[in-house]
Design a protein around this nucleic acid. Sequence first.
DNA 1: TAATACGTAACAATTGCGGTTGCATTAATA
DNA 2: TATTAATGCAACCGCAATTGTTACGTATTA
Lengths: 142, 142
Amino acid sequence: MKRNSRLSLALHTLSHMAGEPGRVRTSADIADHAGTNPVVVRRVLGKLREAGLLRSEKGHAGGWRLAKPAQSITLADVYLALDESLVSGPASEAEPGDCRVEANLQARVTEVLDDIEASLVARLRETKITDFHPSSCSYCGT
Amino acid sequence: MKRNSRLSLALHTLSHMAGEPGRVRTSADIADHAGTNPVVVRRVLGKLREAGLLRSEKGHAGGWRLAKPAQSITLADVYLALDESLVSGPASEAEPGDCRVEANLQARVTEVLDDIEASLVARLRETKITDFHPSSCSYCGT
DNA sequence: TAATACGTAACAATTGCGGTTGCATTAATA
DNA sequence: TATTAATGCAACCGCAATTGTTACGTATTA
Ligand code: FES
Ligand code: FES
């Protein structure tokens, strides 16, 4: 993966949370485990909060936790929360122009890409975030 | 589209060529029509030549033309010629690490993305580059 | 021999993204 | 109440990828 570092971070974090749902984690903890920066973590997790997957609390004993049962969260929920659109990028902003080929191509390619995007989401919906954490891990102490 | 400007340029050019297969076009002509630069055109079309879709000739009356019947060229041929991989970017180069979640996620996501990539190619293979040029166009004089 | 077109390398300009710092705000706690 | 510890957010830096541009060598034709 290259352009999915946000998605990777989100999935990685949620999967760990699914393995120990009660625990509250700070963005510093998460960043440390993921090898990145607390601000980056808050940026990404903020999107997940907007989508209703996470809750965050400020202040002394604050941090992040799941906002709903881990069993009810699928990879598609995470993917959609980030509205990344892996396949169908934003439609080309080329001016209308006089060339019909341009418009015809645009229409056809967009059609195919939208279909593929829908297939992708459907496939992602088949897997829950609870499917990745091992029953025990000495590294994260579960 | 945003990150497919190469693909757009390739499809646009090939579709026009399909509408008037005999004509030889210079990279300057093509660049002018596509609103870009001759060098950019040669870069992109060079990949299509490597894939056997186009032929180019140097010298005074040189330029670009189709290397095979337009009917035999599909969108998939063009897409594959550019090896862009719209969906499944290069596998993450994260170190193995001690975290099982990481590896499990990577495996699953890669699996889904590879499937989707294959579906995309299959869909693109359904459409030929002859499907876009109108029967007559005053702008390009056909 | 002059003109034309590709092939390629090198470089500039732009863009997007992750990372970083700084600070305001909020909440628990000594 | 003062301190500590956490998120929220804005601003900026640096890196990498992409596109655009210039320059020059090579090949082909008139
Ligand atoms: S269809 Fe593109 S210029 Fe005629
Ligand atoms: S599974 Fe990731 S640290 Fe234990």
